[in-house]
């Protein structure tokens, strides 16, 4: 399969102190790491693309490590995650789907024993397209306080022959979470759901 050619990387960290209510004792951190890579399948239909997932695995691990470092470096502090991709105009949505396995694998590898499915979003779009990357708790998808999303994008990406890949992590619940549901303290942690 083709080489992974990176044009640009970006790391974004949000420190959320409050959202109109009482300031959090420890501000919530939401972080994203983005890579803009060349889409080796742009401009034509290629049947056999699955092998590119293996090529993306080292990049995924590198991105997950970069993001963890930007959020303080302690895997035990990461409570939520998500992933996403924006495929440039010359590509297919299916090319974005190549990110599911290497992106998810990378975060689980870095975080240890994360049990929940990594939520994801993908789309085809031009430079400057914004993507809302969904976020859920790393061990139990139904934890209501951790349902969240982070908007990401890069002004000049993706170009038609590029893919923008994203990983997102958070250090906790929404800053003023108070709508009930399963609590992080009540997780059984067996099935990745509750």
């Amino acid at each position: 399969m083709p080489d992974v050619v990176i044009r640009k990387r970006a790391t974004i960290v949000e420190d959320i102190l409050h959202e109109g209510g009482p300031p959090a004792a420890v501000p919530l951190k939401r972080g994203a790491v983005l890579s803009v890579i060349r889409n080796p399948f742009a401009g034509r239909y290629v049947e056999d693309i699955a092998g590119f997932m293996d090529d993306l695995t080292p990049l995924g691990l590198d991105m997950a490590r970069t993001l963890l470092a930007a959020l303080g470096g302690d895997p035990a502090r990461i409570q939520g995650y998500g992933k996403g991709a924006i495929v440039g105009a010359g590509g297919e949505l299916e090319h974005g789907a190549l990110w599911h396995v290497p992106g998810g694998y990378a975060m689980r590898e870095i975080l240890g024993d994360a049990k929940a499915i990594v939520p994801s979003a993908k789309k085809v779009g031009g430079p400057g397209t914004r993507l809302d990357v969904p976020i859920t708790h790393i061990n139990a998808s139904y934890v209501r306080s951790h349902f969240d999303a982070m908007e990401v994008g890069i002004t000049d990406a993706p170009r038609a022959d590029e893919i923008l890949l994203a990983l997102v992590m958070t250090t906790g619940a929404r800053v003023h979470a108070r709508v009930g549901g399963l609590k992080a303290g009540d997780i059984k942690g067996e099935d990745g759901l509750r």
Binding site: I6, R9, T11, I12, V13, E14, L17
Partner: peptide, 15 residues
Amino acid sequence: TIRKIVTVVEETRQE
């Protein structure tokens, strides 16, 4: 009174 602080780092490897 700060509600939020955001940092962004961009690294360009090809142009």
